[in-house]
Write a protein that binds this DNA or RNA. Sequence first.
DNA 1: TGCGTACGCAACCAAACGGTTGACAACGGC
DNA 2: GCCGTTGTCAACCGTTTGGTTGCGTACGCA
Lengths: 117, 117
Amino acid sequence: MAADPLSRVFAALGDPTRRDMVARLTLGDATVNELAAPYDISLQAVSKHVRVLEDAGLVSRSRSAQRRPVHLEAEVFDLMTKWLERYRRAAEERYRRLDDVLAALPDDAHPEGGARP
Amino acid sequence: MAADPLSRVFAALGDPTRRDMVARLTLGDATVNELAAPYDISLQAVSKHVRVLEDAGLVSRSRSAQRRPVHLEAEVFDLMTKWLERYRRAAEERYRRLDDVLAALPDDAHPEGGARP
DNA sequence: TGCGTACGCAACCAAACGGTTGACAACGGC
DNA sequence: GCCGTTGTCAACCGTTTGGTTGCGTACGCA
C-alpha cells in the first residue's frame, strides 16, 4: 500500500470524519461504539476509519475484555510538527529574503510584474 | 467537491510527489517544466498535481509571458500549524494528567493492564 | 506570418477509497 | 451452556484519484 509514514498520516487526516475522531480522542480513550455515536454511518465504516488511523500510527488499540479502547498516540504529531516547521521556516525565510531584495532595489527600478498584489 | 480547506491541504500533502514538489518550491518559484524534471511522469500529470496544490491554497500561479511560475504560499502552513498545535498540546496534556494519576496511585494498586509498556 | 515552446483541457483507465450488508469470532453475564 | 454485546473480516458498489494520450491555446521570436 502506501509506503512512507508521513503520507499515511497526512492522508489519514485528509478525511474530516477522521480528524473529528482525533478531536474526540483528545478527551480520552473511546471504544469504537462510542466513536461511532455522533455519525450516522455503519459501525464497520467507523472500524475502517480507526484502522486507517492505526495504520498511520495516530492511534493504538489495547484490549480490555471484549472492549478495544482506541488511544490517541502523540508521537506522530511530533513527526508532523517537525515536517511542517521545516517548510514553514523555509517559506518565512523566502519572504525575508524577498523583503531584503525589495529594500535593496533602487527606487526607479519598479518592474511591472509584481507577483503579489 | 471536497468541502473544507483543511481536508484539501492534508489530502494534498498525502501524496509524496506533491510533498516533494513543496520541498522543491521552498528553494524558489519554478515552472511546471522545472517541477516535472525530476520525475518520469508526463507533464500533464505534474500539471494536475500543481492544480491540487493550488486548490489546497498551498501554491499560487502568476503568469509572466507563456511561463506560469508556481509560487509556494506560506499562509496555509500557518493554518495547519494551528490545527496541529492544538492537538499536540491536548495530547501532551493527557500525558501530564496520566502522570498525575499514576503518581497519586497507592503503590499496592497496580493493575496488570498497563497500556503503555 | 508562421513556428516552436509552455501549458491546460478532455476523455479515458486502473486502482484506491468510503460506504454498505452479511457472516462470524471473542468475551462477560445469566 | 447459551445469549447479548462488541467488534472485525469479506464481498460488493459508486466515486475519486493518479496516471495516460491527444488536441488546443497562448505567447515569443524569426
